[in-house]
Amino acid sequence: MQVELTQSPSFELVKNHWSQLCANTPGHAFLNECWIAPWFEVVSQHHNPILITVKNSDSIVGLAIAHILTVKRRGIFKRKILFFNEVPETPNDMVIEYNGILAAQSDYPAVWNATLAALKNELVWDEIKINKIDPTQTPFIKAAANENALLFFSEREDTSPIALLAKDSKWEDVEKLNISSNRRRQVRKATQLYEQMYGQLNVHTVTDLNDVESFWNEMANLHTAHWNDKGDSGAFANPVWTKFNRTMISQWLALGQIQLTKYIVGDTVIGYLFNLVIKDRAYNIQCGFLYEDDNRLKPGFVCHHACMKLCHQLGIQEYYYLAGGEDYKVSLSSKIDILDWLCLRKSNAPFLLEDTLVEIVRKLRLLLKK
């Protein structure tokens, strides 16, 4: 395996490389061309990206984008941190999940070994951070770190609930697989109450770019109102995040990679879902729901349940709620992925003082609580 590290690559080069590899290796949503291309165009290219290209002879077998940021931690320590496929120390980044290198799973051992060797020998950094890593890649990263004499740490974990839709099964069986009888009863009662109050539940899918503006604004209004009530500004307050997602929608809606659905009872819209669809997987990127005073009305449950049914009808196999252990995600799913936040170091020596001070502060806080 040969590794090329291209400083500040052009958008055309990145898009061309991803198009080649994604043709046979689509990967998870956040490593797919439909995410990476608009993300590079809107965010990445403004932060000195490094294109990592792994080749076997002349064929591209692995791709990632690295950024090396100087981060000041604890107000004292400056570190050069190499991040994969995100720039989380800036206010404009989007959190990604199922991170890693885009590659066929059979190539993970060789691709990761070659990549870490190149990063160790050719670039200057103190730590490598790979946040919310695709769990199928974690053991190969650990093995490659050991092979290249790098220290490996798993710093924390997130959970990612998934509904398994089993396209060859009846919808009733899919429901039973993912949703408890009690939760199914609650969703049915909520749906019936909506229909008694407003009218029949209908799902409308946006397929025309001319309709995206109103869909986006209405979803943003509901999302923002909900988060404002919680004392938060919500995702739509970030103009770069908004520009990135609007760019992605404009580029991929007509090609079927974007699923925009609106949930209407009578004349009242109770929810919006924005999903990214890669092969036979749907990923819920954003949502907005109409919350009312009556707790029996459960717009999140009703809308996601209806979307699961729609995805099952479309032949989609898995419905990803993405990271977070919220009740509605767990109770509408049958599988949980563990997403590790990984850290690699060349040596612990530069971190001894910082790590020691952090441990002292931690112990003092424990003593003060007693």
Rank of each mutant, 00 (worst) to 15 (best):
I270S: 07
N284V: 07
I101V: 14
L21G: 03
T261M: 00
Y98T: 05
P139H: 13
P239S: 15
R184M: 02
F236Y: 03
D168Y: 09
I258T: 02
I60L: 14
C303Y: 08
Q186P: 07
M308Y: 00
D337Q: 12
L5I: 09
Y272D: 02
T6C: 06
E33C: 00
G199I: 00
N210A: 02
V358D: 10
K262P: 08
D280M: 09
T159R: 12
V187M: 04
Q196I: 12
E218D: 13
K298H: 13
V111C: 10
A190R: 04
G300D: 09
E4I: 08
I278Y: 07
L102F: 08
N202E: 14
P299G: 07
K329M: 08
L209V: 11
I249A: 01
D158R: 05
K346M: 04
N92K: 09
K262T: 11
L69G: 08
L339N: 15
F351K: 04
H28V: 08
N121F: 01
E155N: 15
I338S: 04
R185K: 13
L102Y: 07
D134I: 05
V42W: 02
D107Y: 01
V269M: 07
V111L: 07
R296E: 11
W341P: 00
L201C: 12
A149R: 04
A103W: 02
E292A: 08
A235F: 02
E12T: 12
H67I: 01
L102I: 09
S169F: 03
G234R: 03
E213Y: 00
E172P: 08
M219K: 00
R183M: 04
K262L: 06
A23M: 04
F244W: 05
V95R: 12
A220S: 05
V361I: 09
H28A: 14
F244K: 07
V42H: 01
Q257W: 08
K132H: 09
D107S: 14
K129W: 06
A349Q: 07
K78R: 12
S59D: 14
T159K: 10
L366F: 04
P109V: 03
A104K: 00
N113R: 03
P91E: 15
S57F: 06
Q196T: 12
E147N: 12
G288N: 06
W18R: 02
P49Q: 15
K346C: 10
D327G: 13
E359N: 08
N85T: 05
R185V: 03
L164V: 06
R183K: 09
P38E: 03
L273N: 10
W171H: 01
P161C: 09
T90L: 08
N32V: 05
L5D: 08
E359M: 03
V358S: 11
